[in-house]
């Protein structure tokens, strides 16, 4: 009798486990399916675009004017705008982010760290549209005082703001990497008579190098994908230039522009957003793969 009850109990438990496992699997599956769905739609729609516009024109034409009477479909101005704002962001985020990280990981007393870290993470919580207006209405006028040639819309100001915006992403991941450097490695450096600064820059940063690099790549991906700041403050003018003082348009800002407009479904104008989208997708994918590869390498060192 007891055995029967036990068996019934066992099979009930197994059923319950199975149900939970299936539910968990399905929710994991859904995220995979959604990703695949996005890629499929992106590919399908941009395939339609490339049936009409050759890849050759797409990559060699130096103008992007799909909405004009005589449309030109060269993606380079948008790619250059994206890379330019991202590079400016990186130039700001690299030294600042690294300084913040070194301070938090090597210098800050525990109590100070507990205060600064949440404040820093708050930077990530500011809505990007606020950053955008901040770039346009606050930073650009200040910069114009120093650089009279600076146009009202430009790559510089949103680039700087994006740099500040990605500092929390960069410093939080690279701080984890630096904290993961074992104490005995630091002690080895101190025991040779090194100062804190020497230890941080000559030993801790090289030890955590792949983690720090991965952090910056996450930051780069974030900057490439950033939309609101550049849509508001960069000017919305596809411009194949390396001059940060001129207005530019990024891939993301272009997509916003067309999505908000009234390009009829099925037209080439409409399909350009998918072409821009898939270009963006491959750019961020490339950086994410690089970041993933670098992060995997961290674990091999220790």
């Amino acid at each position: 009798m007891i055995k029967v009850i036990e068996m019934a109990h066992n099979s009930y438990r197994k059923l319950k486990e199975k149900t939970i496992e299936t539910a968990l699997f399905l929710s994991a599956l859904s995220s995979v399916l959604i990703t695949i769905g996005i890629v499929v739609v992106l590919s399908y729609e941009s395939f339609g675009f490339f049936k009409e516009i050759s890849l050759r024109e797409f990559f060699t034409e130096t103008q992007w004017t799909p909405l004009f009477a005589e449309p030109k479909f060269g993606i380079l101005p948008l790619v250059s705008g994206t890379l330019l704002t991202t590079a400016i962001a990186l130039i700001v985020a690299l030294p600042l982010g690294l300084t913040v990280t070194v301070y938090l990981s090597e210098y800050a007393p525990h109590k100070v760290r507990e205060v600064i870290k949440p404040i820093l993470e708050l930077l990530a919580a500011v809505p990007t549209v606020v950053y955008g207006y901040f770039a346009l209405l606050f930073l650009t006028p200040i910069l114009q005082k120093f650089i009279p040639d600076l146009s009202g819309f430009n790559a510089l100001s949103p680039g700087i703001i994006m740099g500040i915006m990605i500092i929390p992403y960069v410093s939080s991941v690279s701080e984890d990497a630096m904290k993961a450097v074992p104490m005995h490695i630091r002690e080895g450096s101190y025991a040779m008579g090194a100062t804190k600064l020497q230890t941080a820059f000559k030993v801790v940063i090289p030890s955590a190098f792949s983690g720090i690099a991965a952090a910056f790549i996450i930051g780069i991906s974030r900057a490439i994908g950033e939309t609101m700041v550049v849509a508001i403050a960069a000017g919305g003018m596809p411009n194949l230039t390396a001059n940060p003082l001129e207005p530019v348009q990024t891939l993301t800002a272009y997509i916003v522009q067309v999505s908000l407009g009234d390009a009829p479904h099925g037209t080439v104008e409409y399909k350009t957003i998918f072409a821009a989208g898939i270009t963006l997708f491959f750019m961020t994918l490339g950086f994410n793969i690089l970041g993933f590869w670098l992060r995997k390498r961290i674990r091999e060192v220790y």
């Binding site: 074992p182 490695i185 002690e187 080895g188 450096s189 025991a191 000559k202 030890s207 190098f209 060192v301």
Partner: peptide, 12 residues
């Protein structure tokens, strides 16, 4: 100078 319990060469 000091030599530690676990070898701790630097990443150099």
């Amino acid at each position: 100078s000091m030599v530690f319990q676990k070898p701790n060469p630097f990443p150099k």
